[in-house]
Amino acid sequence: MPLYTITTQTGVLTPEAKRELAADLTAFHSEYAALPKNWVHIVFQDYPQGNGFTG
Rank of each mutant, 00 (worst) to 15 (best):
N38T: 07
H29W: 08
I6Q: 04
D24W: 10
T8I: 07
P15H: 00
A27N: 12
F53W: 10
A22Q: 07
F53R: 14
D24C: 14
A23K: 08
T10L: 14
P2C: 01
L25M: 11
L3V: 14
P36T: 02
A27F: 06
A23E: 15
P2W: 05
P2L: 01
K37F: 07
L3D: 07
S30R: 10
T5M: 09
P36F: 03
F53K: 12
V12Y: 09
E20D: 12
N38G: 00
G55K: 03
L35P: 09
L25H: 04
L25Q: 09
A27Q: 13
T5V: 13
F53V: 14
A33D: 15
N51K: 05
T10H: 06
A22T: 06
H41L: 11
E16D: 14
T26N: 09
F44T: 04
Q9G: 13
V40D: 05
P2F: 04
E31H: 02
D46I: 01
A34G: 15
E31V: 13
H29A: 12
I42H: 04
P36R: 05
N38Y: 07
G52L: 02
V12K: 05
V12R: 07
Q49H: 14
T26I: 11
M1I: 10
T8K: 03
P2Q: 00
R19S: 02
T14A: 00
H41F: 15
N38H: 09
V43R: 02
R19C: 00
V12H: 09
Q45R: 11
L13C: 04
T8F: 01
Q49F: 09
E16Y: 12
G11W: 02
P2K: 03
F53Q: 02
V40W: 03
P36M: 01
T14L: 01
A33K: 09
A27I: 06
T5Q: 15
N51G: 13
E20P: 01
E16L: 15
G55M: 08
K18M: 08
L3I: 10
G55C: 08
P36A: 02
L25W: 04
